[in-house]
Every structure is written in C-alpha cells, then in structure tokens.
C-alpha cells in the first residue's frame, strides 16, 4: 500500500464510473405527489433521514400498493455529496418493484456493490462510505411509516451516535463485515463519532450509554474468540498444524495425565514437538517425584503415550529428555 498512498490521488479517481454516471444523471431523482400516488392506486410514503447540519440529508418517496405491499415507484431528493446522490439513486432503483419487507433487506453494502464497476473494487473511497449508509437507513424510516411502527422497533436496538443516528447493530455489523480495527474506520464507514464526538469515548460533550471504543473492543474480542474457537474445532489430529497439535496435547495432558502425576507429587512439561515421517514426537521432561521414579521410563511412559494415542492419534511417540 505504501507506494499507492504516496501521491494521495484524487478523490474522484476513487469513485467508480457508475457513481459518476448516477451523480451526473440521477434517474430516480424527484418526488411523487399525492395525486400521482392516487392515480396508481397507491399509498404515498415520504421519509426523511439525516439533516443538512450533518452534511447529508435524504427524502425518500414511495408509492406502495396497499394490497400487495409492493413499491410501485420510488423517488428521492438529497442534500449531499456525489456519493449520497449516486447511492440514493441506486437505492431508489433497488426499491422499485420490491415489497416493503424485501426493500428493508437492502443494506448499504448492497447499494455500494451495485455501484461497483468491477466486483472486486469498492465503488467509493472509505471516508465516503457513510453516504451509502444513509441511503440504507432511510428505507427503515419509510418502512416504519408504512407499517405505522416506531423506527426503533425495526432496528430493535439502540442508537449509539445520535448526530448521525447510527445504531449499535449497524456499528457491530459494519465492524464485522469490513473487519474494522480502529474507531477512525468506524467513523469513516458509519459517520458515528464524526460530529459531536461524544460517542467515541467517555468524557466527551455528553454522557452516552455506548461508546465506540468499547463496542470496537467487544466486537474485536468476539471476532478473535471466534477465530480461536474455529481454530480449535479441528478434530483430526493429523490435519492439525504443530501449534494446534501442541494445544491438543496440552489439553489431554492437563485433563487426564497431570492430575494423576500430581497425586504422586510429580509432573511433566512439554519441551518440544517435532514431525518425523508422519510421527509426532513429543519431547517431555519429568518434574518432581517423576524425575526420580524408576517406572517413569517404563510404565508411566507407556501410560502417557497410551492416553495420547487413544485420545489423539496412533502416530504419537513420547521422548523423554
């Protein structure tokens, strides 16, 4: 990345040509009047999201068929940058023809993906990601109006950043989906923490229930735990790497072998493990009573080796140092 970062590039260069095209000629820009909706036999929904003070605001118009819940027509108006205009346009297009429940499934990631020229190349620079999140949130708002329910009931969760109205769920999802590692990245993607900054960490402008630093820490921990769990899931000893094998051996030793040795005042430690022609050689060193016990090189040894063979694999050999 270093070489690619040095010149810094134009913001425009980081946009896909689809963003450019939608910005220049938005197809779904405009509004739907009561009369137009009535003529279609549809119910008009007008939803606002964001605010000009935050730099982004969108109004979404839906003409919804009340019998089928199908969105017959969608239009938008937006105060925002090129990304906001382009993602609003794609979002309105994606809503059209779907039922309200289906439309609710559209995420900002879907919107962003629809704007890509190349499926492997992100359509917008990271600091503009929040503009696509806005297009996603307004669908929730429109749905809540249509269904006559509270927007919060659709989110079923709490708002972390009031300025940018970003929910706990959105933040957690965004961290997971994009594998975010810093609070700055969360701000880039969601705009949470970009304004009054109260929600970044305690001690800000106002006291908050959730803070981005804590959420990030928690989700990162979850991700790491999942990685470890996935790692330990590997059941087949012969397919494990040496570290996994070591962990498995230690687990068997701790659960089955060490308690018995400890009863006699002894113990052992694993000093090394080597792979030798398909045999896993485990180098152990006796401690305490075991180190002077005459049977440690005969009976105890075959007991330990037998246990590891039974629990893990026949291809295990113990070598005493």
């Amino acid at each position: 990345m270093a070489k690619a970062d040095l010149i810094g590039g134009s913001l425009w260069d980081q946009y896909s040509s689809k963003v450019d095209e939608r910005m220049t000629n938005p197809r779904y820009m405009g509004k739907i009047t009561e009369e137009e909706a009535k003529a279609m036999g549809a119910r008009l929904i007008v939803a606002d999201h964001g605010a000009e003070v935050c730099g982004d605001a969108i109004r979404l118009y839906w003409a919804v068929d009340p019998d089928t819940d199908k969105i017959l027509m969608a239009r938008f108006k937006t105060f925002g940058c090129g990304t906001a205009i382009a993602s609003s346009d794609v979002m309105a297009e994606m809503c059209t023809g779907r039922t309200v429940d289906d439309a609710l499934k559209i995420t900002n990631i879907d919107v962003e993906k629809a704007l890509r020229d190349d499926e492997n190349k992100v359509a917008i620079p990271p600091q503009k990601m929040h503009c696509s999140v806005m297009a996603y949130d307004v669908i929730k708002k429109a749905t809540s109006i249509y269904k006559g329910v509270d927007m919060a009931s659709l989110e079923e969760e709490d708002i972390v950043c009031e300025c940018a109205r970003v929910s706990l769920g959105t933040i957690k999802d965004i961290i997971r989906i994009n594998d975010l590692k810093t609070v700055e990245e969360i701000t880039h993607y969601t705009k949470a923490g970009a304004f009054c900054k109260s929600c970044i960490r305690p001690g800000g402008h106002e006291k908050r229930r959730y803070y981005l630093v804590d959420i990030l820490k928690e989700v990162r921990q979850e991700i790491e735990n999942e990685k470890v769990a996935k790692f330990l899931e590997q059941k087949d000893f012969s397919l494990m790497n040496i570290i996994q094998k070591h962990k498995a051996v230690e687990r068997v030793l701790s659960e089955h072998v060490r308690p018995n040795l400890l009863k006699e005042g002894g113990n052992l430690e694993v000093l090394d493990m080597k792979e030798n022609n398909g045999i896993t050689q485990i180098y152990i060193h006796y401690l305490g009573a075991c180190s002077i016990c005459p049977s440690s090189k005969t009976g105890t040894l075959s007991y330990i080796e037998g246990f590891l063979k039974k629990e893990l694999s026949e291809d295990i050999q113990i070598i005493i140092i």
Binding site: E52, G55, C81, G82, A84, I85
Partner: peptide, 26 residues
C-alpha cells in the same frame, strides 16, 4: 444553501471550473 460543497465542486469540475471546498465532507 441547499448545495453540498463537494457535490458542487464535482459539478463545477465536470464543467471545467476548478474550485476547492471549504466543506467538511470533501
């Protein structure tokens, strides 16, 4: 009013006018 800074810079650039933004967004 009503015109986001970066969107205007984009539009002006498309039409051959180079300006810069004072807005937070760009």
């Amino acid at each position: 009013k009503g015109v986001e800074g970066e969107a205007l810079i984009w539009d002006l650039n498309k039409n051959g006018v180079a300006a810069s933004t004072g807005s937070a967004c760009a």
